[in-house]
Nucleic acid binder design. Structure first.
Lengths: 161, 161
DNA sequence: TATTGTTATACTCTATAACTATA
DNA sequence: TATAGTTATAGAGTATAACAATA
């Protein structure tokens, strides 16, 4: 907002990190950015009683009706056991339904309820607004390219596994 | 390595995520990339008995001799209490020293020992090699710009706090 | 025999309050 | 009184093994 803000500057912790250090800590730079995003997101989602992880699950279910839990777990890159409590929570709040598949009675088809859809729309809108602030000074093109880099890193990592 | 790898493809979880969904989940894309980086990094660092967080602390101490714990905590974006165990571990392994400052006897000056410096050099080299694989197909320019985006997000987040 | 969802569990990282010793 | 480092503790998120029901 203020452009070149008047920096409180209670003395910079690390005077100036050397190029060598920066190169050694690419991963940590991403971690720091992610921390900022996650805490901002969780603050934004608090009024909806959602966290980043429950929000993500809800968005994916809304956008992919009939998704199975194992597919959702893979899409979110978390282990199946860890997804159970998340789906439990969304179901308990009547934001989604868990229906047995006729074709495979081991699996559940996840679908958003009207309430879930409504909450999702509102949450997505709120997240967009907050994200605009977080992405201030970043061109759409630069963001798209940065996300492309993230996707490539992810794909390379899965290849290496 | 294999260029266009022959993808095992046990059926894609989410057929094709809509543009709308992708836009709603920028943060999650960064999370997924970070997860990949972190697990690859921890695997790489295992032979040195380091984790991402202890590695980062060590690199920063090596590069900024005399750093105080509070400065290191700020640089790493973690709370002071959480840094204590990390510094404890590095000190116990004789990789760093904790010396009382004469000018302020509450604070410690952190410095790497010769052993710490040696281990750090080896670890940094190993990380670089692994990172090259993870960053395959990403131009140095694209990486630099993506890191710039990460820095901007981080800065915007701190401003919003 | 393999897979879906589940339970139980353990480990790491993170966040907060309260303490001590110095300033 | 304020700050540096510390302790204790609680909460997320993550990872693994083992189980029941179904394929």
């Amino acid at each position: 907002m203020t452009g070149s803000a008047p920096r409180t500057d209670r003395q910079t912790a690390v005077a100036s990190v050397s190029d060598r250090t920066l190169r050694a800590l690419h991963g940590y730079q991403i971690k720091r950015a992610f921390n900022v995003i996650q805490s901002d997101l969780n603050r934004t989602l608090k009024p909806f009683d959602l966290r980043m992880i429950t929000y993500t699950a809800l968005v994916l279910i809304v956008d992919n009706p009939g998704l199975r839990q194992s597919q959702l777990a893979e899409a979110m890159d978390i282990e199946r056991p860890n997804l159970v409590v998340i789906v439990d929570e969304l179901e308990r709040r009547d934001l989604i339904t868990r229906d047995r598949l006729a074709s495979d009675r081991r699996a559940y088809a996840l679908k958003a309820t009207p309430e879930g859809l409504e909450l999702c729309e509102q949450a997505v809108a709120a997240v967009r607004l907050h994200e605009d602030q977080l992405l201030e000074g970043i061109s759409p093109d630069a963001l798209t390219k940065a996300m492309k880099v993230m996707q490539l890193i992810e794909a390379n990592g899965r290849r290496t596994d």
